[in-house]
Every structure is written in C-alpha cells, then in structure tokens.
Amino acid sequence: MDIQTLANEIPVEGEYALEGVDFISSGEQYLTFSLGLEQYAVNILAVEEIRSWEQPTHIPNAPMFVKGVINMRGVIVPIIDLRLKFGIGEAKYDKTTVVVVLTAQHLTKSRTMGFVVDAVSDVLNAQENDIKPAPAFGGSLAQHYIEGIVNVAENVVTLLDVTALQTIEKQSDNY
C-alpha cells in the first residue's frame, strides 16, 4: 500500500465523527456502556483501558460480584461484575462482554479496578446543565453510585461515580 492510498484512507474531518461528540466543547466526556437493557456512563478520564473478558483468578470468599483478579501488565487488578453488583441483566460471558478498567483517587492513593459490562457503546459529551439529578424513587441502584442522569435522544443514560463504584464493603464473614 503506497502513501497515496494511505492518505486516501484517512477520513475527512466530520465524515466519521462520533455522534454526539464535540471535541472543542468544554463539557465533560463520558464513556457509555450497557448493562442489560440499561445505559450507563462513567467519566472518560477515569478509563484506563477496555479489555476483552478473560477468566480471572478467584479470590477466596469474595462477594459474588467480585469475579477475581487479573494481571494487567504486572499490576494485580480486581474484576467486578457490575451486572451482579447492581442486579441488572444477566451475567453471561461471551464475545462482546468487556471489562472497563477504571482508575480513581481514594484519599491519597489511586486505585485501579476492572468492571464487567455487556458492551461499551459510545462517548457522550455532557454539559454541566445537561446532567439532572436522578429521581429518588424507583430503581434498585443505591443513590450514592449515581452522579446524575443525562438525556441522549430518546434514551436516558445514568452517570456513575467511579470512586463510589470502587468502594468495597468490608469482606463479609459469611463463608
């Protein structure tokens, strides 16, 4: 393939531009993903990488939603199945199942964890005033995980708080 054909392959600006993404806007960007039929999003700056699913090493007596740990370039990273944690959808592992690895600050140190989701979909741009507080009644999801909700076309995307997601309740003694 010569340089000319390569040059032709480069998309003209706007041609393939992601829907809903405005690269020069000042708002925050969020990575959206799906759990069952629902759409969620996390701040894109927290995303370390997106990996395909691999069987992790089991942690003894860990809660159901903690699937285990994997080796990510020499770092031990725990894997949490968000579908199990939130009780949404069905925890099945197939080709589209992905792990979103997120890093967030906890007081003085940062923590890296992988979260199993059904699929990642899009990057969403949300201005501060687009983000609405979630209604207090209804859903089974605990309020402290939710940063707010954003309307995208006809759908509603729930923004999640990464630090809250990474907080693990003390390991239970029930074994």
Binding site: I59, P60, A62, V66, G68, V69, N71, R111, T112, I168
Partner: peptide, 21 residues
C-alpha cells in the same frame, strides 16, 4: 493496593504464564 486485605491470603503473584496466583 487495588482491592483489600483478604482473609487467608497474604498477597498475590504473577506466574510464568501471566496468570495470577
């Protein structure tokens, strides 16, 4: 570092094949 102290386990290591034990 990324998780918490686990009872019965003092730590983890990476084996020759890249898996965690």
């Amino acid at each position: 570092e990324n998780y918490q102290q686990v009872e019965g386990v003092s730590g983890a290591t990476i084996l020759g094949d890249g898996s965690v034990a």
